[in-house]
Amino acid sequence: MSIEITVLFDVVPDRMDSVTSAFQELCGATRKEEGALRFDAFRSEEHQNVIVLVEDWADQRAIDAHMKEPYVADFLARTEGAFVRPPHVHRLSALGA
């Protein structure tokens, strides 16, 4: 069974363009990783300064390897100070699982 994660990012309004660009690059690189089943970023239609990241990973090992990639460090550096609060991470479990 894969690991599904959703992360909500509340972006500082004047940083939205640079954060969007950083997410696009991160998603493009991450989708090429072994074990990355899904890695997509969306802008909320209801809350204009919220980005939602939807991830699906083969296993914890794939997540751990992802976090060590240089482009993840680059993303974190590029988005430092760009969020109103820490991201809200939801690691998901299917109902009845």
Score class of each variant (00 low, 15 high):
residue 2 S to R: 05
residue 2 S to C: 06
residue 4 E to V: 10
residue 4 E to R: 10
residue 4 E to C: 08
residue 6 T to S: 08
residue 9 F to T: 01
residue 12 V to L: 12
residue 13 P to Q: 12
residue 18 S to K: 08
residue 20 T to G: 11
residue 21 S to V: 06
residue 22 A to S: 15
residue 22 A to V: 05
residue 23 F to L: 09
residue 29 A to T: 06
residue 29 A to C: 09
residue 31 R to I: 09
residue 32 K to A: 14
residue 35 G to H: 01
residue 38 R to A: 14
residue 40 D to Y: 02
residue 41 A to D: 04
residue 41 A to G: 07
residue 44 S to T: 11
residue 45 E to C: 03
residue 46 E to Q: 09
residue 46 E to K: 07
residue 48 Q to C: 03
residue 49 N to H: 10
residue 49 N to A: 05
residue 50 V to N: 01
residue 52 V to M: 06
residue 53 L to I: 15
residue 54 V to Q: 04
residue 54 V to E: 02
residue 55 E to G: 03
residue 56 D to P: 00
residue 58 A to G: 01
residue 58 A to Y: 00
residue 61 R to D: 12
residue 63 I to Y: 08
residue 65 A to S: 13
residue 65 A to H: 10
residue 66 H to C: 07
residue 66 H to K: 08
residue 66 H to D: 06
residue 72 V to Q: 02
residue 72 V to M: 07
residue 74 D to N: 14
residue 75 F to Q: 03
residue 75 F to C: 03
residue 78 R to H: 09
residue 81 G to V: 04
residue 81 G to M: 04
residue 81 G to F: 04
residue 82 A to H: 10
residue 83 F to E: 10
residue 83 F to A: 09
residue 84 V to A: 12
residue 84 V to H: 04
residue 85 R to T: 09
residue 87 P to V: 13
residue 88 H to I: 10
residue 90 H to L: 14
residue 91 R to I: 11
residue 91 R to L: 10
residue 91 R to F: 05
residue 91 R to C: 05
residue 93 S to R: 14
residue 93 S to P: 00
residue 95 L to W: 12
residue 95 L to F: 12
